[in-house]
Amino acid sequence: MSPDFIIAAIITVVGLSTPILLAGLGELVVEKSGVLNLGVEGMMLVGAISGFAVTVYTFNPWFGVLGAAAGGALASLIFAVLVLQLNSNQVATGLALTIFGTGISSLMGLSFTGRIVMPFTSVFPDVLAKHDYLRLIFGYSPLVYFALIMVPLTTWFLKSTRAGLILRAVGENDLSAHSIGYSVIKVRYAAIAFGGAMAGIGGCYFSMVITPMWAEKMTAGRGWIALALVVFAGWRTGRLFAGAYFFGILMALELYAKASGFSFLPSQFWAAMPYAMTVIALSFISSRGTAGANAPACLGKPFLPST
């Protein structure tokens, strides 16, 4: 295996991992605040079309990314109003958000089918971005670096800031947080909007970076993998990062194995791997007796203060 071959394979893995890492980080924060939003797939699609549309109109991918974040956040706020204000069931509402996001993105995308934009690739000079070896470091879209920076930032926010502590408190025991004067609803609104924005940016990675076009349902189920990833990671950012790349490597391995003529395992096996690994990870965590130590105690429960 030549270095070229390995570098190209790594670049493929990065492309597969980045969108689920972005969406997974957002969902992790949402779940840490005690809300389960199953609408990741829908928010990714809304982000994908929003980012693409803004890029078409402004010719500026940076605005496109902002548009994707705004689109994802707006979609998530519909969910937020329903579950926070009206105390609707989070699982059902999240699923509805996926269905809604799929539909509204198709509708928004009607006039954008068949158009393309410039791919949002590396902003480094070609000397670095297209260099035989240095492209391994400099050859990616800015969104890849953004995702990587967001990993320690999110960790730092959750672990070391006052706001992060409040967010976790809200997720662990909403009534206590409420009784000492924190606004559970406001914190959760902020967390949900952040999750939506991150899912939106993850979605626009498809429509602006990998394949700079819009196609209906183009995320093809990656939102569900991002959801599995959060559980796989046991609600820890570091493990989420590792998990995203682990899933990315699994997806790439499937392709490389098949394209190289190996057929020792059926492809359905590979396709099921991210989910199977999540189940295995969950069982493993449970067997160590630390189950639930990381799952926020209020996850998925409506906030119903008595006063």
Partner: peptide
């Protein structure tokens, strides 16, 4: 129809 997978598969080939 799975654009991200089609893209990754093309890169692989």
């Amino acid at each position: 129809f799975d654009p991200p997978k089609e893209a990754a598969a093309t890169e692989t080939l």
